[in-house]
C-alpha cells in the first residue's frame, strides 16, 4: 500500500526514515524476540556437544571434538532403534485411532441446533485439553487401574478383573486412549471452523434438488473439510517423531522401556539420567533434523496436491 505511493528518492534516506518512523514498533518486539532467541535459537549452539566428547565438569569449551563418533555409537545402540520403532508405532496408532474421532465429534456438534446444549457439550469436550498429564494419569489409574472403579465393579459382580494399567501389551493403546480423552474434543475446534465456512447455499440448493443427508455429507460436507483434513494428517506425519513426552515419561516405569521408550524419553534417560550427554544430544539432533525434513516434505506434498499446506506457497 505505502510502497507504491512512496517517492522513489534516495534509498538510504528511505531506509533511515522508515527506521525512525517505526522505532517504537521495533522496540515493542524486543522482549518477545529476545526470549525466542535465548530459549529457541541459542540452544541450537548447544548441539555442538553432539560432535564432542562432552563432560559436564569440563564444559563444552574444553571438550574434545570427535566427529561423528557419537552418531556411530547411537546408531549401533539397539535401545535407540527400539525407541524409534515405539515412536513410529504410536504415531501410526494415533493416526488410525485418534484422527477420525474429532472429525466425527465435529460433525455431531455441527448437527445440533439447540444452542444451550451445543455450548454445554462443547465446553465439556474442550475441558480435558486443559488438564495436566499428571492429573490425567491419576484419573485413568482411578478408573482403569488394578484397584480402580472398573475392576471394583467387576470383582463385586464375580467377574475377572482387567489388567490395563501396567500391562506392557496394551500400553500403546492406553496412550492413544488417553490422548483421545484429552484432545479429541479440543481438536474438533478446527473442523468446526471448516464446517462453518461451507457455503450454506450449497446445502440448500442440493436439498431442493432432492439430495438426502448422506448424499450431502459425501458431496458437500466432506469435500468442504478435505483441505483441513489433509493439512492435519500431513502436520501429524511431519511431527511423527514427537509423542507427548510428559505423558510417556509419567508412565514409562509402569511397563518398562521395551514397550514404552520413545525418542524423547530415550534422550532424557540415556542422556540426562545416564550421563551420556553427547550421544543423547546426537539422538536429539537426529530427531530435530529428521523432524524438520519431514515437516518440509509434508508441506511439499500438500502443495503438489494443490492444497495450501502449513505455510503458503511462496
Amino acid at each position: 500500500m505505502t510502497g507504491s505511493t512512496r517517492p522513489p528518492g534516495n534509498h538510504r534516506r528511505l531506509w533511515r526514515h522508515r527506521l525512525r518512523r517505526d522505532r517504537a514498533l521495533l522496540l515493542m518486539t524486543v522482549p518477545g524476540l529476545l526470549l525466542l532467541i535465548l530459549f529457541q535459537y541459542l540452544p541450537l549452539l548447544g548441539n555442538v556437544i553432539a560432535f564432542q566428547d562432552y563432560v559436564p565438569f569440563l564444559g563444552f569449551r574444553n571438550a574434545e571434538f570427535v566427529g561423528l563418533a557419537n552418531f556411530r555409537a547411537l546408531f549401533a545402540d539397539p535401545a535407540f532403534w527400539n525407541a524409534v520403532a515405539n515412536t513410529l508405532i504410536i504415531t501410526l496408532l494415533n493416526l488410525l485411532l485418534f484422527f477420525p474421532v474429532p472429525i466425527a465429534l465435529a460433525l455431531l456438534l455441527d448437527s445440533l441446533f439447540h444452542e444451550r446444549i451445543k455450548k454445554f457439550v462443547q465446553g465439556v469436550m474442550f475441558l480435558p485439553h486443559f488438564i495436566s498429564w499428571v492429573v490425567i494419569v491419576a484419573l485413568f489409574t482411578q478408573v482403569l487401574g488394578g484397584a480402580g472403579v472398573i475392576n471394583q465393579f467387576l470383582l463385586r459382580h464375580d467377574m475377572e478383573p482387567v489388567h490395563i494399567i501396567g500391562n506392557a501389551s496394551v500400553f500403546k493403546l492406553l496412550l492413544v486412549a488417553e490422548v483421545i480423552w484429552k484432545d479429541a474434543g479440543w481438536a474438533c475446534i478446527i473442523f468446526l471452523a471448516a464446517l462453518s465456512a461451507i457455503d450454506s447455499q450449497l446445502y440448500e440448493s442440493s436439498a431442493v434438488d432432492g439430495a438426502g443427508y448422506w448424499r450431502r455429507m459425501f458431496h458437500i460436507t466432506l469435500p468442504g473439510i478435505r483441505p483441513v483434513i489433509i493439512i492435519l494428517i500431513l502436520l501429524r506425519l511431519g511431527d511423527a517423531l514427537s509423542i507427548g513426552f510428559e505423558q510417556v515419561l509419567l508412565q514409562r516405569d509402569s511397563v518398562g522401556p521395551d514397550a514404552a521408550e520413545v525418542l524423547d524419553t530415550y534422550v532424557y534417560y540415556f542422556g540426562v539420567q545416564g550421563g551420556n550427554w553427547s550421544i543423547a544430544a546426537a539422538a536429539g539432533l537426529f530427531k530435530a533434523v529428521v523432524g524438520l525434513i519431514l515437516v518440509l516434505s509434508a508441506n511439499k506434498v500438500a502443495h503438489m496436491l494443490g492444497e495450501d499446506g502449513v505455510y503458503r506457497r511462496p
Partner: peptide, 11 residues
C-alpha cells in the same frame, strides 16, 4: 523445530 532437551538444559 523444538530446541531439544539437552541443548535447552545446557542453555
Amino acid at each position: 523445530f523444538a530446541p531439544g532437551i539437552i541443548p535447552l538444559y545446557l542453555t
